[in-house]
Design a protein around this nucleic acid. Structure first.
Lengths: 334, 334
DNA sequence: TTGTATGCGTTATCAC
DNA sequence: GTGATAACGCATACAA
């Protein structure tokens, strides 16, 4: 026997397909007796809904797409994992789209997702602003942005950690622990979260009456960490007073810290270091790395909830949601 | 105007739907003139194939499922990323299924994937053997296993790193660098790859005429790393001669190393450490962590190629493919 | 070379 | 409370 269809079930149960459909979806009226009868047959045959047919008929696909720059980044992976978990509970499949930061791939993905008739889209991070107009179809798919600037705010809901707060607290933490010349280490290309973190850093300095010198206090790194050692050495020659580093993420913090140690500079004694993201490795490095933890759980939950609500009504469009972060002090900054 | 259908295109182009379909799929014969005409309309309207309809008709979904225990594990993330990249190039969507090591979730996922009519399945790791019989449908979906033992070998293609070789080389590396009492650190629950690594470790000892004492030479850890510090201390008390640790993955290696340092034990001077997976953090820890690199690129490519070939013919069923690994010595073991 | 007609499995409308 | 049937968009067998 090939796969059972609703028709087969109807036949076996001695009812019509309409009735079977009603029972399956608990939609409309039917007697308790037929309900039991139909359900029994379904159980016995192992009948499964054919989603392609259902999708076609209902113009709904029960799947949502997730656009992410790099799934092997711990923070992204964490968020995607949570998103997927929640979506699955709600009956949605998650189609993962790793754009590898390529605009071209992003467009190609968008096209495919649209063709598949996805019910919604979650866009995570990315340097350029996200433009839903890239979709060809007339009716735009609902989408939410996590740490990614939308081209047009009023077409989406924006969710992100309070990067500003995190950076501010991290910087003040350095100052309180005695740093007089803290610097910020970041990538040359800035995501929205990166910009916010920079602002938090600057404002913490300002509040403590420390002048922010663009050149002296910002250590700019290649995204792929080439020549990191050289860049660091050059920087320290030009900013010899550096006694604290706020790194925009843990990967940068880690690699800087290990380079400092190799150069014979003691962490945290001579230079204190603090990162961002609170990756598990922070506990295992030597010294252990201070960091700022993002609440991935809340971010993911909020994103999914917002998206689902968008599929039902558009009241929340234009909203912006900020998720608090927490400072996690460890040995590298104390 | 709502979304365009093939019917709309036909109308606009002044041909029949059949012709449009033929042009779109380059299937059957049609004149160059009509081809151009139809394509022009498609271009102008932004028409996109409705996959739900296509799937229903062709009984094919152009999407494949990936079952993975934990996407935030670096190795898994890496493999999934590559798989997704290759699949996308071939026109397939990747549905990610994070089982969180739960049997229950796995079954639920399988059901959903089957309902969606996925064309194939890639199963990554997992402690229990994978049983495709969990699927309810009559015709079984083609699938391949990466580092996961299938219940029945002849129903799949198995792909995995040469864990044995990696463990063997890592252990010999420790011995060559002077270790006399190396131990293996691993989780209490063993995946297929874990078992292979243990075998490699044992055989390296045997080859070098070192007796493997189950108790003295294996450091068993909780998968969630609770009480790791205590476990390590107890172990070292009972095996005080320990001068080298082969950790079954980098996370374990890292956390052991940091604990050793905290206890005042010098790495690599007193105890050498080597891990597995070659995560990026290995370069940033202090000391940098020696490891064994898995060739995620080849693993992913092989998995996808095998799966696609399975969808076309079943000749390769039962095959087992082993991907070489490479030793990456760093400071922690020299 | 092109058109007509059918059916894939489902839901929803309408009639009974 | 239940059944018959149209429609979703597409590919294809068969006709022309």
């Amino acid at each position: 026997m090939a796969k059972y269809s609703i028709k087969d079930i109807a036949q076996l149960a001695g009812v019509s397909v309409a009735t079977v459909s009603r029972v399956i979806n608990d939609n409309g009226r039917f007697s308790e007796e037929t309900r039991k009868k139909v359900l029994a047959i379904i159980e016995r045959t192992g009948y499964q809904t054919n989603f392609s047919a259902k999708n076609l008929r209902m113009n709904k696909s029960f799947s949502i797409g997730v656009l992410v720059p790099d799934i092997s980044n711990y923070f992204f992976a964490q968020v995607v994992q949570k998103i997927e978990e929640i979506l699955f509970k709600q009956g949605y499949a998650t189609i993962i789209c790793n754009t590898a930061r390529s605009e071209e791939k992003e467009i190609a993905y968008l096209q495919m997702l649209e063709s598949k008739g996805i019910d919604g889209l979650i866009v995570i991070s990315g340097a350029k602003s996200f433009d839903i107009q890239k979709l060809k179809g007339p009716q735009k798919i609902p989408f939410v942005c996590i740490d990614r600037k939308p081209r047009n705010k009023s077409t989406t809901i924006f969710i992100g950690s309070n990067h500003y707060q995190g950076a501010f607290e991290a910087t003040e933490h350095l100052l309180k622990n005695g740093c007089q010349h803290p610097v910020i280490a970041m990538h040359t290309t800035a995501t929205p979260s990166g910009v916010e973190r920079l602002n938090g850093f600057k404002d913490a300095l300002k509040k403590n009456s420390i002048f922010f010198d663009d050149k002296q206090a910002s250590l700019l790194l290649d995204p792929d960490h080439t020549n990191l050692t050289d860049t660091l050495k050059t920087f320290l020659k030009e900013s010899p007073n550096t006694d604290g580093i706020f790194a925009i993420n843990d990967a940068i913090a880690m690699s800087l810290m290990s380079n400092l140690l190799k150069m014979g500079i003691k962490v945290p004694k001579q230079i204190k270091v603090i990162g961002f993201d609170d990756t598990p490795q922070d506990n295992y490095s030597y010294p252990t790395l201070s960091s700022v933890r993002q609440d991935t759980e809340t971010i993911a939950t909020t994103a999914v909830t917002s998206l689902i609500s968008l599929t039902k009504n558009t009241n929340d469009l234009g909203k912006s949601i900020m998720v608090p972060v927490t400072l996690v002090p460890r040995d590298s900054s104390i």
